[in-house]
Structure formats: structure tokens, C-alpha cells
């Protein structure tokens, strides 16, 4: 199981939680598990998100491994100028 921290305004999609647990070994599995456990997250994830693992931000990388003790943060999709 990995702990996933969500940005605050996703509380409405997770019944008030900003830290949730899912069973996943990489980012792709984690995103699928989140969408399955919290269906209201599915459209948000499909629309594009970033994932930070141990401080490193990944935009779209399904196969990035996640260790059970990794810090995992779901972040919005970001773009610069």
C-alpha cells in the first residue's frame, strides 16, 4: 500500500480526505487505483495530473516505481511559459 497526498480541493472527491491509501507499485497503477476507489477522481486524473514521488515531479510516467515508504503527492497538471 502507498499513501497518496492529494491537493486540498480534491477533498470533495474523496469524502473529505487529503491523504488516502491504495495498492500500487508504480504511478500508472496508483492512478488507476485512485480512480477506482474514488470515482469522482477519474475525470480529474483523465484530464491530466502530475505526481511527485520523493520530491521528484513526474508529469506522465506510468511506470515510475513507487516504494511502500515513498512520499507520493498527487498534483495538478502544470505548465510554464
Amino acid at each position: 500500500m502507498v499513501k497518496v497526498n492529494l491537493w486540498g480541493s480534491l477533498r470533495s472527491a474523496t469524502g473529505g480526505l487529503t491523504e488516502v491509501e491504495v495498492d500500487a507499485k508504480n504511478t500508472g497503477e496508483m492512478l488507476k487505483a485512485l480512480a477506482k476507489k474514488y470515482p469522482a477522481l477519474e475525470l480529474i486524473i483523465e484530464g491530466g495530473v502530475s505526481v511527485a514521488i520523493d520530491g521528484q515531479i513526474y508529469k506522465e510516467a506510468w511506470f515510475t516505481p513507487i516504494k511502500p515508504d515513498s512520499e507520493v503527492v498527487l498534483m495538478p497538471y502544470m505548465k510554464g511559459g
Binding site: N5, A52, D54, G55, Q56, I57, E71, V73, M75
Partner: peptide, 9 residues
């Protein structure tokens, strides 16, 4: 712990 979520390296 950054204000936007992840911990800084």
C-alpha cells in the same frame, strides 16, 4: 515540506 505538496530535494 513545500507549501504545494512534495518535500524539497
Amino acid at each position: 515540506l513545500s507549501s504545494y505538496g512534495p518535500t524539497f530535494d
